[in-house]
Design a binder for these strands. Sequence first.
RNA 1: UGCCCGAUGGUGUAAUGGUAGCACGAACGACUCUGACUCGUUCUGUCUAGGUUCGACUCCUAGUCGGGCAGCCA
Length: 606
Amino acid sequence: MTAEPTTASEPTPTAAPALPSDFIRDIVQQHVAENRYPAGIVTRFPPEPNGYLHIGHAKSICLNFGIALENGGRCHLRMDDTNPAKEDIEYVESITADVRWLIAGWADSILGLKPRGALPSPVADSPRPDLLASPAPVAANADHAATEPFFASDYFEALYGYAEQLITCGKAYVCDLTPAETEAYRGSPDTPGKNSPFRDRPVAESLDLFRRMRAGEFPDAARTLRAKIDMASPNIWLRDPLLYRIRHVAHHHAGDGWPIYPLYDFAHCLSDYLEGITHSICTLEFEVHRPLYDWLLESLDLPRALPRQYEFAKLNLAYTIVSKRKLMQLVQENHVTGWDDPRLPTLSGIRRRGVPASALRAFVTGVGVTKFDSLTELAVYENAVRDSLNTVAHRRLAVLRPLKLVLTNIAPGETIDCTAGNLPADPAAGARTLGLTREVFIETEDFAEVPPPKYFRLKPGGDVRLKYACIIKCDELVKDAAGNLVEIRCTADLSTRAGQANCDRKVKGTIHWVSAATAIEAEVRLYDRLFTKAEPDADGDFKSHLNPRSLEVLTAKLEPSLATATSADRFQFERLGYFTPDAKDSAPGRPVFNRTITLKDTWSAK
RNA sequence: UGCCCGAUGGUGUAAUGGUAGCACGAACGACUCUGACUCGUUCUGUCUAGGUUCGACUCCUAGUCGGGCAGCCA
């Protein structure tokens, strides 16, 4: 091959990964091009702190933070905490930690691409000028917003003011109907509702009543504040929707000063407005709320640009459920060990299982953003996890189900050093030394006394390579009185070690092993999908489809270098999968490893 | 039988009136001291019926199928 410098004078295309594209990003792009939001693009991720975040939220987080990052904008993590009865500070903390984990380091990689817009300028009347005033770099800003969440409950006072404004201009009224009456008056999807008898109550009376609601004069559910729209609207959310309800409960963030709390529809659009959100992106079930979102904002006298709502389809992943209510059941009924059980699709569980945040991001980005209610195959997720781990996880040897093997031509006490690269594809990742000894453990399934067709592993009279060591030949089986195999006796061909005369000798199979003399023991937890059906709740009975074999606990033999591993480490146990020490249960001297995912197996399935 | 939304290979997604492409998956093959990775080849698609157009995945009409909406939840 001649070294023709054909490309020397051509500009080397810096293979920048393409920015994701979808119908929402297209809209944002157009707005950027039109300079519709001169102050910049601002999005938000608004979970209610009533449960743990899950893989579905990851899609929303990546969409919202991604759009902000790509456009030099901002994304606010906002607790949508308007219903204190269901919420708890525990969830505020877990959500904050999970979001921070998911986006950590992301800005750096995405900012390597060219940001498409200018940095937003401060929003003058923002309730959080501390956050918004400093034009920090986007990367820092993104992490900061995730670390320091916004709270809808911080806006209760401002929201209350908007409510009074709505009453004053005749667009809201205090209603004394009971909950049951309210429901009855609402009608049904195909029959119009009826006007509340309190609908035309004088403004002054509604205002007085609303102030007394706030003062705590009335018991729970005695009255509500409602928007005055159209009880006959084909859209149920326009049939005089409730804006405020009376609840004499303390709030985990706002304290105990509020006997009334705003409902989602009222709080959300105005929280978006207060934070200067430009694109309020939510899932499809809120599509029918959009007219109300717009009605509320347009009914008030608001000086700044109004946010607009856009909807996309939430993520559905095969063999998993993400409903907070159902996850809660699994946790409370002890089908799993907690919200961070590695079998759960919660971000805490996924993290504990050992999945890198970058893998999750790649997965949800690859799935795309549409309005089609799809079901994503688990293989797509698994591919993203393997793909991410493959290049970074150092290789190690471990034996899950040990079978004793004696190398009869190695003397007791003798050790033969073998070098094993940490990342065979990348010598810079270094290597460690494995000591081959007379007694080793191999995987039980790597030996077959009666091998099936095309069996590459060890069999009577056959030979196989011990990874990083040498080729061995099976001479003899030792069985106990009951006929159970207790030991295999082999001869090691030491001339086939790396650098030796016959190192290039080929055999069909290569198996992993650990030295019986130096192996450490560890608990290893193997996970399988939590459910046996692709759509566990299709028949409304997800608990009957729990996989009884979703967790298998073994005592494994590991190569000694694994003794000092921490939960920040990720390994590939060769031929077995990717593993990480469990962040909760692993301790020095008592290691516990989680299997993040198996390696792809194109043989045993046949 | 109200209103809103959607429909492209097995799965997910692109093509924005002009060559139906990508990824996952599957099959086969090459390579291999991981039956992994990598590489190569192959496989399968525009819901139906009309219409507009030189030309339709794209626009229009009707239908079919699927999803969402009747919490003082979000």
